[in-house]
Amino acid sequence: MKKRNPLGHLKKKMESVSQKQRIVITGASGQLGQELKVLLDKDVSKECFFLDRKQLPLEQITIIQDILGMYQPDVIIHAGAYTAVDQAESDIDLADQVNHLASEEIALYCHSHGAKFIAISTDYVFDGNSCVALTEDAAVNPINVYGATKLKGEQAILKWCPEAVIIRTSWVYSTFGKNFVKTMLRLLSERESISVINDQIGSPTSAQDLAQAIVDIVNSGKWKGGVYHYSNEGEISWYDFAVAIRDIKGLNCEIQAIPTTAYPTPAKRPQYSLLDKTKIKATFGVEVTFWKDSLLRCLDNEELK
């Protein structure tokens, strides 16, 4: 009679787990991180680890590679960042540690261990002086600390991990976290009149749509490193965005259009940062939804009712 191996069941279980694609997601508590969790939790072919600032403190540069090594990921989706744009003007060192040096450490890990790397960047690497949709090879020239640290992060990633996929995005919103849509919903409900800037032009990005695009890239079976642009389709101002939110929700607040000069902030913003999405669509077959369609879906969410 053949003896039964008491460890056989455990071995098979471990082999089954090892066959799954292991993905580490940084910035798990952010808008994009939470949208990625909604999508990836449904995928039984993947073993995903969602790391927030407690589990992966990006400012502690010296321990990042050791922490990543504990998970042995096949793919890292780096959604974590220092995103307090105005505060970064006076918190330069921390913004640089998180956006630049931490990204470099993750790139070094991927270089050493053969992990695929998807990193999220920003339209703020541009100065806003363009008048046409920005392609990936448009000249970069950040005009605030946040944009400068994100650009240095991009450069460090491509230095150590040139096969990484970097996705620049803009005006991100979601049912999760703090963002323009949720702020507008509150102000439009509380006040009779508000003022919104009408001379900064770009396109919003639904974090849900961006998360789906990232998952589609991971699942595509294709991999072509480089910088890509992703936002929803269309060209609007913040004022146009606010008006759409008001009208969709049927609110009565008056919205006054004002220039950027009437609302000074510590950090300058690019006045024009519309992103050209041709490359990401052609390379990965990613579908890009029109901004208003994505906004309608977001505002129809029970969390915002």
Rank of each mutant, 00 (worst) to 15 (best):
E47F: 11
K116N: 05
A211H: 10
L32W: 02
H113I: 04
E303C: 11
L251S: 02
F241K: 09
K222F: 11
A267P: 01
G128H: 04
K152V: 06
K224C: 14
K116Y: 12
D66E: 15
V196K: 07
F126V: 00
G33M: 12
E235G: 00
H113R: 14
I61R: 10
E287F: 06
G225D: 03
S121E: 06
R246H: 03
K224T: 12
R186M: 06
Y109F: 15
E254W: 00
N232H: 03
T149I: 02
G147H: 03
H229P: 09
L158G: 07
T278M: 03
K13I: 08
D123S: 10
N219K: 14
G221H: 05
I217S: 12
P204N: 09
A79L: 02
E105G: 01
T122R: 01
Y173W: 05
V85I: 15
E104A: 13
A156H: 03
H9S: 11
I76E: 04
A267R: 01
L36H: 00
S294H: 04
Y239S: 03
S294Q: 10
Q97W: 02
A107S: 15
I167S: 11
I64Q: 07
T122Q: 07
M1W: 13
T183F: 12
Y71H: 15
P73S: 13
I64H: 09
A213Y: 09
N99R: 10
Y82Q: 05
G153N: 06
I214Q: 11
M1L: 12
V125C: 01
K249R: 14
S195I: 01
E192T: 10
G8V: 10
A102S: 15
S29V: 00
Y173G: 03
H113V: 05
K116V: 03
A133G: 08
I61C: 08
N179S: 06
N129W: 00
I194G: 03
D66Q: 13
G147R: 03
L94I: 12
D293P: 00
I118Y: 13
S237K: 05
A139G: 06
E233T: 11
D41H: 11
D276L: 09
D43M: 13
M70T: 14
I120F: 11
K46N: 12
K279E: 09
D52G: 14
N5C: 15
E192C: 00
L299G: 06
H9E: 13
L101R: 15
I92W: 07
Q271W: 04
P259V: 00
G153T: 05
G202N: 10
P57T: 06
P162R: 04
A79C: 15
C253R: 02
V172F: 03
E287H: 14
Q21R: 15
G80R: 03
W160F: 15
Q55T: 13
